[in-house]
C-alpha cells in the first residue's frame, strides 16, 4: 500500500444470506483520484461503495479509509462518516426540512458548527451547484435534477475528503442528467477524491482517472478510460461494452 492511498480495500467479501455479493475486492484509491465503477446490475458495485462508509457491513477482508480501519467500533464509523460524503440514486433528501435545513442539519448537529457558520457555507455550496434561490423551498417543490444537486451540496457541507456517488443520475429525466453531471465534473476539477457508480459512459471517458469494471461481485478489469474503452482485455468487459455503447 502506498502512502498516497486514502482508501485501501483488501479482499472485501460480503454475503446477503447465502448469496455472495462481493467475492474479494482489492482496490486502492489515491487522494484526488476520480474512480468510475461500471458493470451490469447485480454485479455488486453499489454494495461495494456502500461498504466504504459502512451502510453495508463487509464480513471478510479489510477496509481502511484515511488510515482508519472500518470495524464494529462506533467511533471509527462516526469518524469515517464525517469524512466520506455520499450521494444516493433516489436523492434521499429530508422532505420535512427546507433545502437550507437539509444542508445545515449535519454540520450543526454532528460537527457542532454554529448555525450562522453552517448557513454561510450552505449558501456558498448552493451557489456552487447553481441553485442559490431555492434555499427556503422544500425538496418536494424542486425538480429531480435540482434535488440531486441539493443532495451533493448536503454531502459537501460536512467538508468531506471523499465523495461516493451511487448511480446519481439513474433516477433522473434525461434532460436533467447534464446539470448533475456538470456539478460532479466541477467537483472533480477541484481535486475531490471521488468514487462514482454510474452508467454514464461519457462522464467516465471525460472525467475518470481510472475505470473499474465489476461483474459477479468481482473487480474484473481496471484501467484508464482510454485503455478501457478502446482496448478492453477481458471477454466479459468486451461483451458489456458492446451491449451498451
Amino acid at each position: 500500500m502506498s502512502d498516497q492511498a486514502i482508501i485501501d480495500c483488501r479482499g472485501v467479501k460480503k454475503w446477503f444470506g447465502d448469496f455472495q455479493a462481493l467475492r474479494g475486492v482489492d482496490l486502492e484509491v489515491t487522494k484526488g483520484e476520480v474512480v468510475v465503477i461500471i458493470g451490469p446490475s447485480g454485479s455488486g458495485k453499489s454494495t461495494f461503495i456502500r461498504c466504504i462508509n459502512r451502510l453495508e457491513v463487509h464480513q471478510e477482508g479489510q477496509i481502511f479509509v484515511d488510515g482508519i480501519e472500518l470495524t464494529n467500533d462506533v467511533r471509527n464509523i462516526e469518524a469515517i462518516r464525517k469524512d466520506v460524503g455520499m450521494v444516493f440514486q433516489s436523492f434521499n433528501l429530508f422532505p420535512h426540512l427546507t433545502i437550507m435545513q437539509n444542508i445545515t442539519l449535519a454540520p450543526i448537529w454532528v460537527k457542532k458548527q454554529s448555525k450562522s457558520e453552517a448557513e454561510a457555507y450552505g449558501r456558498e455550496l448552493l451557489e456552487r451547484v447553481g441553485i442559490p434561490e431555492q434555499a427556503d423551498k422544500y425538496p418536494g417543490q424542486l425538480s429531480g435534477g435540482q434535488q440531486q444537486r441539493v443532495a451533493i451540496a448536503r454531502a459537501l457541507a460536512m467538508r468531506p475528503q471523499i465523495m461516493l456517488f451511487d448511480e446519481p443520475t439513474s433516477a433522473l429525466d434525461p434532460e436533467m442528467v447534464k446539470e448533475v453531471l456538470d456539478a460532479m465534473k466541477e467537483l472533480a476539477r477541484e481535486g475531490m477524491t471521488m468514487i462514482v457508480v454510474t452508467h454514464e459512459m461519457g462522464f467516465a471517458r471525460e472525467v475518470a482517472d481510472r475505470v473499474l469494471f465489476f461483474d459477479y461481485g468481482q473487480l474484473v478489469e481496471a484501467g484508464t478510460p482510454e485503455h478501457f474503452f478502446t482496448n478492453p482485455q477481458h471477454d466479459r468487459t468486451k461483451l458489456f461494452l458492446s451491449q451498451i455503447l
Binding site: L55, G85, F94, W109
Partner: peptide, 26 residues
C-alpha cells in the same frame, strides 16, 4: 423509507439525532 435512515447515517448522525431530527417528525 429506508433511504432516510441511510442518508442520516451517511452524514454521521447518532441514533438519538436520527430519531429526533429525521424519523420521528416525519
Amino acid at each position: 423509507p429506508k433511504g432516510q435512515y441511510e442518508a442520516a447515517d451517511a452524514v454521521g448522525m447518532s441514533v438519538v439525532q436520527k430519531t429526533v431530527l429525521i424519523t420521528l417528525p416525519q
